[in-house]
Amino acid sequence: MRELNEPKTITDAVFAAVADHSRPLLTFYDDSTGERTELSGATLGNWAAKTANYLVDEIGVVAGDVVAVDLPEHWQTAGILLGALWAGAEVHFDTTDDAMVLFTSRDRLDGHPDVEEVVVASLDPFALPLRDLPPGVGDYGSVVRVHGDQYSSRHPASATLEGTPIGEVLDDARAIAERDGIGPGTRVVSTRPWPTADRVIAHLLTPFLVGGSLVHVSAASPERVAAIAEMEKATLVLS
């Protein structure tokens, strides 16, 4: 039985932990492209809500349905993951079997020839649409933009990341936060990747779930990471 104080979804727990939704929650750097994108709790919440509304209203996702994600670390990936979890979906990373929809990038599209419903994330800093996608393939920014930027969980999630129960995710996040010294208000600069369920919990969700914020840095030298940490007024650097 679900505990009375247990949130319906991981995404509910994430945004319940945010003390000030106007402050930065996720800042994304990609030094290979020069991108720096900063999302407040409100802005990230809007993208997650649009994604959840799209999944529920257009795709027909209900609690326990599988949503597949094959994307690199990016702020759009975070919005997709939080939106899928908010919709009550079970998110898979290594397989598209039984997936109602797959989110991927243009360069990974050919690796999923048998998936019927595919959405490609542009990974553009401003979520600008991609051109010349194959017929039947949706552009993430375009398909979710028309949906509402508020969402309320309709049913408790039966599973979250590759079948992990919500209580287990929350327990793991608390243990990781204690181990790494992450607490309320901690601003974490991290280069740690999140391509799998356990790493999404450890390297993306944990700072959010305990009331901290995350600055994720890709393709940067140690010296550059140190400079970003100073500029972002980080209280913790993880690499």
Score class of each variant (00 low, 15 high):
Asn5Trp: 08
Asn5Gly: 10
Asn5Ser: 13
Glu6His: 01
Lys8Leu: 14
Asp12His: 11
Ala13Val: 05
Ala16Ser: 14
Asp20Val: 05
Ser22Ile: 06
Arg23Ile: 07
Leu25Asn: 01
Leu25Ser: 02
Phe28Met: 11
Phe28Glu: 06
Gly34Tyr: 08
Thr37Met: 08
Ser40Met: 11
Gly41Ile: 07
Thr43Asn: 09
Asn46Lys: 15
Trp47His: 10
Thr51Trp: 09
Tyr54Cys: 03
Leu55Gln: 06
Val56Asp: 04
Val56Trp: 04
Glu58Gln: 13
Ile59Glu: 11
Ile59Asn: 09
Ala63Glu: 13
Ala68Tyr: 07
Asp70Gln: 09
His74Leu: 00
Thr77Leu: 05
Gly79Met: 10
Ile80Leu: 07
Leu81Trp: 02
Leu82Tyr: 05
Leu85Gly: 01
Trp86Asn: 04
Trp86Thr: 00
Ala87Ile: 03
Ala87Ser: 12
Gly88Thr: 12
Thr95Glu: 06
Asp97Tyr: 08
Met100Lys: 15
Val101Asn: 06
Phe103Pro: 02
Arg106Ala: 15
Asp107Ala: 05
Arg108Lys: 12
Leu109Ala: 07
Ala121Gln: 05
Ala121Tyr: 04
Ser122Arg: 06
Asp124Trp: 08
Pro125Ser: 08
Leu128Ser: 14
Leu130Cys: 07
Val137Thr: 13
Asp139Thr: 10
Gly141Trp: 05
Val143Glu: 11
Val144Arg: 00
Arg145Glu: 15
Arg145Leu: 12
Val146His: 09
His147Pro: 03
Asp149Cys: 07
Gln150Pro: 01
Tyr151His: 14
Ser152Phe: 15
Ser153Phe: 07
Ser158Tyr: 05
Gly163Leu: 07
Thr164Asp: 02
Ile166Thr: 12
Val169Pro: 01
Asp171Val: 13
Asp172Ser: 13
Asp172Glu: 14
Arg179Asp: 15
Arg179Met: 14
Gly181Pro: 08
Gly183Trp: 02
Pro184Val: 14
Val188Cys: 01
Val188His: 00
Val188Ser: 00
Val189Trp: 02
Ser190Phe: 00
Thr191Gln: 11
Trp194Gly: 01
Thr196Gly: 00
Asp198Gly: 09
Asp198Cys: 06
Ala202Arg: 11
Ala202Thr: 13
Ala202His: 08
His203Thr: 11
His203Lys: 05
Leu205Arg: 04
Thr206Ser: 03
Leu209Trp: 03
Val210Thr: 07
Leu214Pro: 01
Val215Phe: 01
Val215Thr: 15
Ser218Gly: 04
Ser221Asp: 08
Glu223Gly: 11
Arg224Thr: 10
Val225Leu: 08
Ala226Gln: 11
Ala227Asp: 12
Ala229Arg: 00
Met231Ala: 11
